[in-house]
Design a protein around this nucleic acid. Structure first.
Lengths: 335, 335
DNA sequence: AATGCGTTTGCACACGTGTGCAATTTAGCG
DNA sequence: CGCTAAATTGCACACGTGTGCAAACGCATT
């Protein structure tokens, strides 16, 4: 027991074969006789052998690690995404290397290094603050890059984007059906690309119907941001609707409007969110929202990972479909 | 540009020195002259050199990876913990390898392998379903193990546990101050050690005061579990209080009790949760709860990681202090 | 039995790094 | 300048794995 770890050589000695045979036994599709394979498996089991992925990665010039750069892990939608990604990667035999972009805010260079130094198979960037630097570095080092809701950036990275245009339009149509004439639109201050698209699409449709718009863009993507917006915006009694770029903001807005300011939602006021996080289903809120299912994101990501074209041959693009989920913060349909 | 990656040898050639010098330049405390160091750094910068961590890990017989085994990533407390851990690891120059225990439920052996094959520096197990197998495997392979809220298991793993006994007692005292005589206690069906401790401590105190107890242990740790419990338990009109082992369950219970069944909380009914997740502060709920701060967990984890004693010399133990956070689901204090 | 062909096996090299050891250069000091 | 100690540098090995190549082997057909 030197250093506590068993190597392929140890197994080979135990089984009375060459080290190559051990390696081949654990390499799918390699040529080993049934007899030898069984003897090796028995020896490996007995000694508790585990292949050293570091050595394997060195030899293969690539690891099974996939870097996942996430920010705002407190946002339920992001964690749902992370949950799905980590599960999917595990089932593919890949490892999930989680990098907290928040913690690396003023040290992006270091973050880039940590990813690249491990020769990761790919890097997935969840929406959030835009680390441009990492994008450029990945592309320069031939590391596959998967961007989620970051819009059309230059460079051939795979891109997966919510159909925000349809999402914004669906929300607008619903708002118009409710007969609202002056709606507030809200998003967080750090201007994510995806939030911008939703809001712009919403505004475009509202403008066509001559509905007045009041814009709010401030603070982090949080419940409190919605609360604050409600307290200030709702001083203007002419506002009769709100479209929030994320559910978290929408829930804060709704909470303050309904329970603090006593506004009758949906009778006098309509609220629509975006993401369809679990909290929207709480009976106390029942928020009408636009959903872009996590499942669809996962599928798209797996498609990107499975695709084994060269990086120079261009990239993949996926659009995640959306759906308006009508709950209790918009008026009931006219039948 | 062979294979797209620059090696130390490439840098050495560019700088006109030996490869050893390059290695030493990037090894803190090694002996390199100022002149050579600068020449090497310039060459490395120019070529875009990055250490290959796989080779480094192979050489050092250890990687900078830390395995984090998490289940129930949809629980806000767990994600807050994960957020803190990933940030702290990053700042320590360590990598966070996230493993989804949920996805590996019927494939724990595979999960064990994935961790050990990467020669991780340590494994952190967040509370949740108990993968006994991984614990045993880590200890057998001399991998440091950090158990969070999993109680006193055999084997010398570092253990970090919430002071559940005090937590349960504090909740009980508050409930008694409210004069409740029949309280329901709730926890999820998969019996986590930590939940069990809280509840038992609570019950012990209530028994001393001759308060009637109704037990509920069913379903996952979720909002819906709390809703379901409320609908069934509250048919019994004599119940006038509830202690929930997690905030998620407590919020579901509160939501159904207050908004669906119209029960006056806290006038006629007291509810106390556990975890102090952000949602407890929502004005619509303002849940009284027991907090065990994420910050304290992170500190304890870092202490474990920094500690470089041998595994055979015993393990560390930390107890996380708790605090009762009084909000709007228990009666106001008598002054 | 001899031939031919497909399968199995072992040798040896490569992957990129850290570091002990000895050789060499530099610095310090009289 | 000469001597000694210290700092620097290069060589060579080790870490554990996958795989090309050639040798050895098994088996069926002639």
């Amino acid at each position: 027991m030197k250093s506590g770890f068993i190597t392929a050589a140890d197994v080979a000695r135990e089984a009375g074969v060459s080290r190559s045979a051990v390696s081949r036994t654990f390499t799918p599709g390699a040529s080993v006789s049934k007899d030898v394979r069984e003897r090796i498996l028995r020896a490996a089991e007995k000694l508790g052998y585990r292949v050293n992925r570091l050595a394997q990665g060195l030899q293969m010039a690539q690891s099974n690690l996939v870097g996942v750069v996430a920010a705002n892990l407190t946002s339920p939608f992001n964690t749902a995404l992370l949950d799905g990604i980590s599960a999917a990667l595990f089932k593919r035999g890949l490892q999930c290397m989680l990098l907290n972009a928040e913690a690396a805010r003023d040290d992006i260079g270091n973050l880039v290094n940590q990813v690249l130094e491990y020769r990761v198979r790919a890097v997935i960037i969840l929406s959030g603050a835009p680390p441009e630097e990492i994008i450029e570095a990945c592309l320069r080092n031939d590391v596959r890059l998967i961007l989620i809701n970051r819009g059309t950036l230059p460079g051939n990275a795979d891109k997966i984007d919510t159909d925000d245009l349809t999402g914004g339009r669906l929300a607008a149509e619903r708002m118009l059906q409710d007969g609202r004439r002056h709606v507030a639109i809200m998003r967080s201050g750090n201007g994510s690309v995806s939030q911008k698209r939703r809001v712009e699409s919403f505004v475009t449709r509202m403008n066509q119907a001559d509905v007045k718009i009041t814009d709010w863009m401030r603070g982090p993507n949080s419940f409190e941001t919605g609360c604050e917006a409600a307290r200030i915006l709702l001083a203007d009694k002419s506002i009769d609707g709100a479209f929030c770029a994320t559910d978290l903001i929408a829930l804060g807005f709704l909470n303050t409007a309904r329970f603090e300011l006593g506004i009758q939602v949906p009778r006098d006021f309509s609220i629509i969110g975006f993401d369809n996080i679990p909290e929207t289903e709480w009976p106390s809120h029942r928020l009408t929202t636009v959903s872009h299912p996590v499942k669809a994101f996962i599928e798209a990501i797996l498609n990107c990972l499975d695709d084994d074209r060269q990086l120079s041959e261009g990239a993949l693009n996926f659009t995640i479909p959306v759906e308006l989920i009508e709950r209790g913060t918009t008026a009931a349909h006219d039948a």
